[in-house]
């Protein structure tokens, strides 16, 4: 267990690497990477039993990034954990790189599923959780889905299946940042309320502020204790969190900061 102060430090490094990667590639998705940085930091440093040595196998907890466009976040987290080399991050989205625009599980140790087409990741997590039940192991499966992503019907098919098979080894997290590409989720195609939907599907539902490490800690602890049903953590977050000009701005979903914007972002993140 690392302290919350350490978590904040790691999350800041991760956010800086996200901005640098996307800027260097002149392409990628900063907004939804920054919004989930705190949750993933906690997950990888204090919940999941993943490290450099076991990352290549499946004899451990696993994580599915269903919103695969947040790949910069996943790569930055893996670098922060020492599972991939930090210097590799500069190859992101470039030709011949292992760090594909959307994650490829065959190229990177620690990437547990290839994703990028929205709506499929939670189903793959259901498959992994079912396999863990068959194998009678205690490994947990975590899955991050976007709030816009949950407009895909398949998300709710997976939700139904997970409850039906009582997958209490599965924990989904909704990155509830309120934005998708074309604007506010409630304007484009309203998928809310999340809590009532998941409750109706017979899930254990926990709602938190996704940038508050105390609440994140409690949520994951509660998730682990819940038996007989899967847990969803509905995390209220800010898209672009930490970079003032990106915060709550749909335009930064999939655009890259230029050099100058990148410098400003890094300064802000460092607290200068």
């Amino acid at each position: 267990m690392i302290t919350k102060e350490k978590c904040i430090m790691h999350a800041t490094n991760i956010r800086m690497n996200i901005v640098k990667m996307v800027s260097a590639a002149s392409s990628g998705h900063p907004g939804g990477s920054l919004s989930a940085a705190d949750i993933l930091t906690w997950l990888y440093f204090n919940e999941m039993d993943i490290d450099k040595d076991n990352a290549g196998g499946i004899d451990r907890d696993r994580f599915v990034l269903s919103k695969g466009h947040a790949s910069p976040l996943l790569y930055a987290v893996l670098a922060e954990k020492g599972i991939i080399e930090e210097k590799e991050l500069s190859t992101f989205r470039k030709i011949d790189s292992k760090l594909q625009g959307h994650p490829n599980m065959n190229y990177v140790k620690g990437v547990d599923m290839s994703t990028g087409s929205l709506g499929q990741g939670l189903s793959t997590a259901v498959g992994m959780a079912l396999a863990n039940k068959l194998d009678e192991n205690n490994h947990r499966i975590y899955c991050l889905i976007g709030d816009g992503e949950s407009e895909e019907g398949q998300i709710w098919e997976a939700t139904m299946a997970a409850a039906h098979y009582k997958l209490d080894n599965l924990c989904a997290i909704v990155d509830f940042n309120g934005l998708q590409i074309d604007g506010n989720i409630t304007d484009v195609m309203n998928p809310t309320p999340f809590d009532k939907k998941f409750e109706a599907f017979n899930w254990n539902v926990i709602t938190i502020d996704g940038h508050d490490f105390d609440q994140i800690e409690q949520a994951f602890a509660q998730a682990k204790q819940c038996k007989g049903k899967p847990t969803v953590i509905i995390a209220h977050t800010i898209k672009g969190k930490g970079v003032s000009y990106m915060e709550n701005n749909a335009a930064w979903h999939g655009s890259a900061p230029n050099e100058q914007q990148c410098e400003q972002a890094l300064k802000e993140l460092k607290g200068e």
Binding site: S27, G28, N104
Partner: peptide, 8 residues
């Protein structure tokens, strides 16, 4: 499509 990669 370019940088988005194979999934797209």
């Amino acid at each position: 499509v370019g940088e988005d990669g194979a999934s797209h």
